[in-house]
Nucleic acid binder design. Structure first.
Lengths: 194, 194
DNA sequence: GTTAGCATGTAAGGAGTTACATGATTTT
DNA sequence: AAAATCATGTAACTCCTTACATGCTAAC
């Protein structure tokens, strides 16, 4: 399973833990959570859902035909629900603090479910992420040294800009770590942007 | 040809235009230029090189066995050179201002070769990139509106942070556009970071 | 002596996109 | 009247990574 599919599974499990959803709505929420440049395609989502049903993590049910509104002619929707096994699987993924969790894709999803983890787990992931960003910074610095004469103003500007972005993310992570250590007041996270 | 391969071809053509290089060295420079998180694998590079040789854009020659130094036992290197057809192909790609050029992957590579283009081409690409970033910003803002109640402090912080990053890139692009309009002094590009 | 760097490749497999297939309803 | 949104899927294809295969040299 590729790193993309892995965070997809995690995100689906987490979203269905809140409420049962059908594929179309799930996709919209996943697009927000995965925050990806390109939208998730149905060719990725539906097979993944199928796979998760086969694995027993979620169940699929046809939406009850009519409750209050006659849902005039609209195509029947399939509602996905989390099973007990799925809940267990989600808990397992939630407590994961392996290096995979600080890579771009997974880190974002984990952050979205941070409220359901322990402070310890949060700190481990945040510190791992920080280390990962420092590595990236070192790589950029090394390549700046090696190619300073070879690059023209444009190439240099690009390198400096990406260095800057990574440095900013480090500062952001530092603020999250700080507020986590000071007792984890979730309101402080959003108070210091811009 | 995927969007990754496309910028790979462009970058290889540009690098070989400066000087003939062997695969291993080419890869190191490509890693800097493509600025990717993960290093380019040989399983991607060598087949791509092979393909370009077959297409007639580059030629491959065994490195002359010994010129001055006996290159003691080191494995024979294969040197790649740009052909006339390759030079033409590079010129073609250089003047491209299609929407593909303002996507993440390609934009970076195009920036690296900006010094070889006209101010007009540069402005078109920069403005396209700017528009692309504004779209992304609109998407983030829309998703923030839709999910403000659903997201907790962590999810919100993440959205705000990515919004911030994109806004900063817009400002950076604006500075590049400005200096381009004021006569394109390449030194000013690096003067305003941090 | 063993890790890291130099150097070039292949084969197999998996992941995910694009295009296709279908059709109703609501908004512009 | 057209375009967008709702809604679910499949099939083929493409790209790319991972793992394998090989072997020398320099540094630690």
């Amino acid at each position: 399973m590729g790193r993309r599919t892995e965070s997809l599974e995690f995100a689906v499990l987490g979203l269905l833990g809140d409420a049962p959803l059908h594929g179309y709505e799930l996709r919209k929420r996943l697009n927000v959570m995965l925050g990806s440049f390109r939208a998730l395609s149905y060719g990725t989502l539906y097979p993944a859902l199928k796979h998760m049903v086969a694995a027993g993590f979620i169940s699929q049910t046809d939406e009850p035909p009519a409750i209050t509104k006659p849902l005039a002619g609209r195509r029947a929707r399939i509602v996905y629900r989390l099973t007990a096994a799925g809940r267990a699987r989600f808990a397992e993924l939630l407590s994961d603090v392996s290096p995979a969790t600080w890579e771009d894709e997974q880190f974002g999803v984990h952050l979205n479910f941070f409220a359901r983890t322990s402070t310890e787990t949060r700190l481990r992931i945040l510190e791992g992420r920080r280390a990962r960003l420092e590595e990236r910074l070192a790589m950029i610095e090394k390549s700046l040294e090696l190619t300073r004469e070879r690059l023209d103003g444009y190439g240099l500007a690009l390198q400096e800009h990406s260095k800057d972005s990574v440095q900013r993310e480090v500062l952001w992570i530092d603020r999250l770590i700080d507020s986590e250590r000071r007792g984890g007041d979730s309101r402080t996270h959003t108070a210091q942007h811009g």
